[in-house]
Design a binder for these strands. Structure first.
Lengths: 163, 163
DNA sequence: AACCTTTCCTTGAATCTTCAAGCAAGTCCG
DNA sequence: CGGACTTGCTTGAAGATTCAAGGAAAGGTT
């Protein structure tokens, strides 16, 4: 059975269009900025940031993939590249012989130190310097709602019979 | 001269993190949905949508690239692929011999007709069904502000001496 | 007309992402 | 213990994107 689709209202359409354009432009902007100043795409930079904030500057591959919201496969390739750059190193996990730890090297940390100020400035210029504090709050709340609904282990709202 | 970087406040950090996670998860989600149901990634689907809404279902390559916020190069490759699928056709532009029109074929239109309902449902489920009408308004306004600031032909805020 | 610059679009190579397949170590269970 | 299943991660090929380079037509200048 097919129900008549509930199309988007005029306001929803405008919001959706603006969302697509803003997110596309921003991701593109950040990719270029980081490619130019740090020699890597935005996602890779985000991986280094995660590692830098983790205890011992290391994280299991799966954990890193989960916090960065990317697949394990993609992470494997990414870490291979970052390893060639000397910014990350793999270490065997002592407690689980299948496991790998991705470890941020000193060189990797140095790259972050050098490029973080420029990156924050770019993010500010694109987002926070243009929004009121109230809008920053609103955006945070909205994005948290969306992210929660999209987690691989969803709330179950899409599979209510499994709750 | 280097000024001390203005790091993000706690609230800004949380908002930024939520933004990155939500946008990453959503783009991923839409890519999978459309790859599964329409056999193409989200960006390609967006190109067909733009064409379907254009007069005569056709658009100059450069115009299409601009409304979709992607580079001409990327569009060239994308249209080549969509052409192989039979969903888009290229036509010479009568008024400018350099120009090319991308034209949505009947097959391309049919694909949209078949897959649009499922796609709207996915977008609704991920975004609009989770937000209040007030939040939809807020998000629209926020995204318009960001998009405006990121247009290639910016407001000039980054080049104030050129205004 | 000759020349220079810009606009429109494409191309190929390098890089990045996805997808399906697979290996090896851990866990469960009789 | 032995077998089946799960978890953690990697691999290679196919597809997508970026980047730098370039060709061809249009526009501007002298």
């Amino acid at each position: 059975m097919t129900t008549a689709p509930r199309w988007l209202s005029g306001e929803e359409q405008r919001t959706w269009r603006a969302y697509l354009q803003a997110t596309t432009l921003l991701e593109d902007h950040l990719d270029r900025q980081l490619q130019r100043d740090a020699g890597m795409p935005h996602v890779y930079y985000g991986l280094l940031v995660q590692l830098s904030q983790a205890p011992e500057r290391r994280l299991r591959m799966t954990e890193l993939a989960e916090t960065a919201k990317i697949t394990r496969s993609r992470l494997s390739h990414a870490v291979a590249r970052l390893e060639r750059n000397g910014w990350v190193r793999r270490e065997e996990c002592p407690s689980d012989r299948r496991g790998q730890n991705a470890v941020l090297t000193d060189e990797g940390y140095a790259v972050l130190e050098q490029t973080a100020p420029g990156h924050v400035a770019t993010v500010r210029q694109a987002m926070f310097d243009r929004l009121t504090p109230e809008q920053v709050r609103q955006l945070g709340e909205i994005m948290r709602v969306m992210a929660e609904g999209l987690q691989p282990t969803g709330t179950g709202a899409d599979l209510p019979w499994l709750r």
